[in-house]
Amino acid sequence: MSMRVAVVTFPGTNCEHDAIQGLEAVGAEAVFWWHTETSLDGIDAVVLPGGFAHGDYLRPGAIARFSPVMAAVADFAAQGGPVVGICNGFQVLTEAGLLPGALQKNAQLTFACQPCGLEVAQTSSVLTRGLEIGQHLEIPINHFSGSYVCDEATLASLEANDQVVLRYRQNPNGSVANIAGICNVAGNVVGLMPHPERAISPLLGSSDGLHLLGSLVSSLPAHR
């Protein structure tokens, strides 16, 4: 039986179709999951896709964290369920306190929309289990507020606990320590700014996103 993945859709989300297509490409059954849902029954993994949840009003992710589904996502994550936030989804996870730090406006105020070289920094998260440390990936970014910021103590604990999942090979946005993605201590909650669902075919310039999505789908559902 294939893994059933909920792709959480807020008003203003705009990468949900791409996410579903990417997850289906690696053999998952992916379903839209509207933000007013209060449960995640029958779901093996959750993806929070990119976009502008609730118009990004106040701050990206600031209003989305109050959507009813987020209480269910927090419970699911606490039970070890795999949760991946992509771009705006990463911003939602930091605002909800499920991941440390914050995503600040890009340095130079540039909107960054380009293919991006990444390096895999650890392989114990649900998104990188099937990869190798140091492996290079080419995956596009598309964001205005993607500069990862945290205080020095948080950065030290991220490094010490092996929570930095992906790093930029060339920093496009001013993120501390070239951070492109992080996970929680357990490795089941991952946030990343690059869009793996936009790198699923040579026609798109890269199919490296399949390695990450494939890793998520092949990871055993830890909560069952």
Binding site: Q104, K105, A107, L109, S147, V149
Partner: peptide
Amino acid sequence: QLRPGIADPEGATI
């Protein structure tokens, strides 16, 4: 306001 020490690209542009 952004905390002191946090880069402020918007302020710098203004």
